[in-house]
Structure formats: structure tokens, C-alpha cells
């Protein structure tokens, strides 16, 4: 049995690639959009900021699975069929953006008002002040929250199983459907792989957090 398990490893690793790829792409989408949302809500005027508020509430209020179904099946009903991977990245990314926006906004709010004032006094435009003064500080402060978000996205890529993405869980399924004796060992092995990924991701980000810590800047991020 151990041998069969070892034989299944390459197949699982193939799935793992997709799990990691999904995680990275979704996080990139989530980060970029999340920063825009946070800046828009912190510095934007009412129509924009209330629109963002609604976006955040909606994407944080409904289950990922429902988001997946809306994007994957819903869009295809409109004739805009996406492949499962694109749908999964969109779903995970759009939802993550809503959570990340919250993280960044907390960080932006914790930066003293004087920073913005000082930047303006140098003649920087509002956009430049945000870009060069506020965001570099806010992003550093966001690392702990972001690290938490990374592990959540990583674990939730497994839900893409439900729209047919051939990630770790589905590759595992292929293995044990062919060889039912392996079902429990394969599932445990998959659990172990996730566990190692989650632990190393949060350890790695912990390290980053320490490395990029600014002295005198140990303010916690509001979650």
C-alpha cells in the first residue's frame, strides 16, 4: 500500500501545482483589487466609497461556493462560459479583495494624519502622497493580516474542486477512485501537504514581517 501511495505522488504533485497556482493568481488579483478598494474607500467620495462598501459586504457575506457557482454556471448561462480555473481565480480573487481591502484600510487608518499633511506640504499631489508615503507604510503594517489571508485562500482553493478544477483534491480523487484501498491514506497525505504548505507560508511571512519591520512602527493592524 505504501508503494501505491508513493506511486500516486507524481499525480498529487501535479494537482499541487494547480493548488499553488490558484493561490498565487487569486492573491495577486485580490491584492491589486484590494488595494484599489481600500484607497477608494479611505480617500474616495461618497458614490464610489459606498459602492465599495456594498462590494465588500456582498463578497464577504456569501459563501465562496455560491460565488463559484454564480461565476461558473451563471456566466455560462449568459453565454460567457469560463473555464473552471479562470472561474476559480476570479471567485477566490474577488472575494479575497473584499477581505484584503479591510486589512489595508485598517492599516491606512492607523497611519497618523500628519504623514499626509507632511506629504502635501512638500507639494505632493494626493495621489502621489498615497502612492509614495501612505501605501508603503500601510502595506508593511498589513503583512500579518495578509499572511492570515494567504492561508485562507490556500485552504479555500480546495473548494474549486466543486467546479471541476483539477487541483490537489481532485487529483487525489482520481487516485483513490481507481484504487479504493488508498482512500484514507491519500486523503491524509493531502491533509499533510496542505498542512506543510500552510505552516511554511505563515512561517515565511512571519520572517518577512520581522525583516521589513520599521523601528518605531510596531502598531498592530485592526482586523
Amino acid at each position: 500500500m505504501l508503494e501505491a501511495l508513493v506511486d500516486s505522488l507524481p499525480q498529487l504533485l501535479e494537482g499541487l501545482k494547480f493548488t499553488i497556482g490558484l493561490t498565487i493568481l487569486s492573491l495577486i488579483l485580490g491584492s491589486l483589487l484590494g488595494i484599489l478598494l481600500a484607497v477608494g474607500r479611505s480617500y474616495g467620495k461618497p458614490p464610489l466609497s459606498s459602492f465599495i462598501l456594498i462590494y465588500e459586504k456582498v463578497f464577504r457575506g456569501i459563501p465562496l461556493l455560491v460565488i463559484f457557482f454564480l461565476i461558473f454556471f451563471g456566466l455560462s448561462q449568459l453565454g460567457l462560459g469560463l473555464d473552471p480555473i479562470t472561474a476559480a481565480v476570479l471567485g477566490l480573487g474577488l472575494r479575497s479583495a473584499a477581505y484584503q481591502a479591510q486589512i489595508y484600510r485598517g492599516a491606512i487608518n492607523s497611519i497618523p494624519k500628519g504623514q499626509m499633511t507632511a506629504a502635501s506640504s512638500l507639494g505632493m499631489s494626493k495621489l502621489k502622497s498615497i502612492r509614495y508615503i501612505i501605501l508603503p507604510q500601510a502595506l508593511r503594517l498589513s503583512i500579518p493580516g495578509w499572511s492570515n489571508e494567504l492561508t485562507i485562500v490556500l485552504k479555500d482553493t480546495s473548494i474549486a474542486f466543486s467546479i471541476g478544477v483539477i487541483e490537489l483534491m481532485r487529483q487525489g480523487r482520481y487516485v483513490y477512485v481507481r484504487n479504493p484501498d488508498l482512500i484514507l491514506p491519500v486523503l491524509l497525505l493531502i491533509a499533510l501537504i496542505y498542512f506543510i504548505l500552510v505552516i511554511s507560508a505563515s512561517k515565511g511571512l512571519n520572517y518577512l514581517e520581522k525583516k521589513y519591520k520599521m523601528s518605531g512602527f510596531e502598531v498592530g493592524v485592526e482586523r
Binding site: I159, P180, L184, A191, F195, V198
Partner: peptide, 23 residues
């Protein structure tokens, strides 16, 4: 606590529902 928080809920459900029958 660490094992549960370090693995996806879906994997945990699969182990309980699909995995346990084999024992």
C-alpha cells in the same frame, strides 16, 4: 488546533465522509 487550522475544511469533511468507511 494547529492541524485543524492548517488543513482545509473540505479535506476534513472528505476524511470523515469518504475516508472513515475504509476503517
Amino acid at each position: 488546533i494547529e492541524v485543524i487550522r492548517g488543513t482545509p475544511l473540505l479535506v476534513q469533511l472528505f476524511i470523515l465522509y469518504f475516508g472513515l468507511p475504509s476503517v
